[in-house]
């Protein structure tokens, strides 16, 4: 089995040409209309903040929140890296959109048979041995595709070799348990509105701590409640019997 893949996005190299956006639209057969923010018609967008261009797309978490919250298992983290979506299962509860820490999944609000839409990390293209459309299209190498561990090494190397050029942080290395999309930047990530209050613990652990206790809870409280019922019932019965025998006397 091949190693998990990832994308490394070096914001310092991005020139804002949007080649990735157009390539993405073509690869995923999305309408040409441009969106300001991620939408069901745009799996990635290039945005600008104070002269710095950056991308937004699905982070493809190692422990995806969307896959954890989906009641019908419509999301799946594949061993190759991409978090894929099985639209046929989706009931449209939109818990994934609500819960995603990176606010990535979007919904087809105008449709009467709506589905969730988000970047697929070109899972289909990857199966054919190709790299993602965005990394293929990027003219400056701002988005590159490769093995996750190799890209992490590359990112560390760039930080070390160019002191002062980067913030000493690889966004996505550890955020929410780590992601398959990694960012390097010259400006602190909160400037772009990237959530910086995420712990290294996957968010899904927060619910699993409670959910994993449910089977025990059901058994224990079932026995406990029946016990209470039985004890009180027994007491009342014996009381009745005593009264009865007293009456006979």
């Amino acid at each position: 089995m091949s190693k998990p893949k990832a994308l490394l996005i070096d914001i310092t190299k991005c020139i804002g040409c949007k080649a990735c956006v157009y390539a993405c639209k073509e690869a995923n057969h999305l309408p040409e209309k441009e969106d300001e923010e991620l939408a069901s018609t745009s799996y990635t967008v290039v945005k600008e903040k104070e002269g710095v261009y950056y991308r937004r797309l699905c982070m493809h978490c190692n422990e995806p929140t969307c896959a954890s919250v989906c009641p019908v298992k419509a999301f799946e983290k594949t061993p190759e890296g991409p978090v894929t979506y099985h639209g046929k299962k989706c009931i449209g509860c939109r818990y994934c959109i609500q819960a995603c820490p990176f606010s990535v999944p979007t919904y087809e609000w105008e449709s009467t048979k709506p589905l969730v839409r988000k970047c697929t990390m070109c899972a289909e293209r990857q199966k054919q041995g190709k790299i993602t459309a965005c990394s293929e299209a990027c003219p400056t190498g701002a988005t590159i595709f490769g093995d996750r561990d190799e890209l992490l090494n590359e990112a560390r190397k760039r930080i070390q070799e160019n002191p002062g050029q980067y913030v000493d942080h690889i966004y996505g290395e550890k955020e929410a348990g780590g992601t398959s999309v990694l960012f390097l930047s010259s400006v602190p990530f909160e400037k772009f509105g990237f959530p910086t209050n995420l712990t290294e613990e996957p968010l899904s652990d927060l619910t699993w701590k409670i959910m994993s206790k449910i089977p025990n809870y059901v058994v224990v409280s079932g026995v406990f409640l029946y016990g209470i019922y039985w004890i009180i019932n027994r007491r009342m019965e014996t009381k009745e019997l005593k009264n009865k025998s007293k009456d006979k006397e």
Binding site: S68, V69, C70, P71, V72, K73, A74, K89, C90, I91, G92, C93, R94, Y95, Y107, K113, P114, L115, S204, T207, W208, M211
Partner: peptide, 20 residues
């Protein structure tokens, strides 16, 4: 629900990790 006619999917596709 976006696709309420699929509500029965809850019966067949299980995800015990999901609170929903």
């Amino acid at each position: 629900l976006g696709q309420p006619w699929r509500i029965w999917h809850l019966l067949i596709y299980w995800n015990p990790h999901s609170v929903l």
